[in-house]
């Protein structure tokens, strides 16, 4: 598992049924691009988050393929529909096989 990787998400706690909400996500990850060289001149191998998904009660909201050109501490903002009360499930997949997850519940008025 890469060190110090911490996800952070911003989701409103409540929404009206059928409302569109803005979701923001960030994960602290170095996103080693594979382009950098160490002090001996050897290439530092690529090690990035390569995929990010968000689903609500099992329905996919967004599925992102990331390349090394995504900045350190990958940030995404996108819009989701809240059809009913439920839970957003966020997943980040690391090149090294680790999977980072977090969930956020939303109530419906």
């Amino acid at each position: 598992m890469a060190k110090g990787v911490k996800p952070r998400v911003k989701v409103p706690k409540k929404a009206d049924a059928g409302e569109a909400i803005t979701i923001k996500t960030l994960i602290s990850h170095k996103m080693e691009s594979g382009q950098r060289k160490d002090s001996d001149g050897n290439r530092i191998p690529r090690s990035i988050i390569n995929r990010f998904t968000c689903a609500f009660n099992g329905t996919s909201i967004i599925d992102v393929t990331l390349e090394p050109a995504i900045s350190t501490n990958p940030y995404f903002q996108f819009e989701a529909v809240v059809p009913e009360a439920g839970e957003f499930h966020f997943t980040w997949y690391d090149d090294d096989g680790s999977v980072y997850e977090t969930k956020k519940a939303v109530k419906v008025a």
Partner: peptide, 9 residues
Amino acid sequence: ATFNFGSGS
């Protein structure tokens, strides 16, 4: 990057 939008987007 590629953003694939699901039915919940």
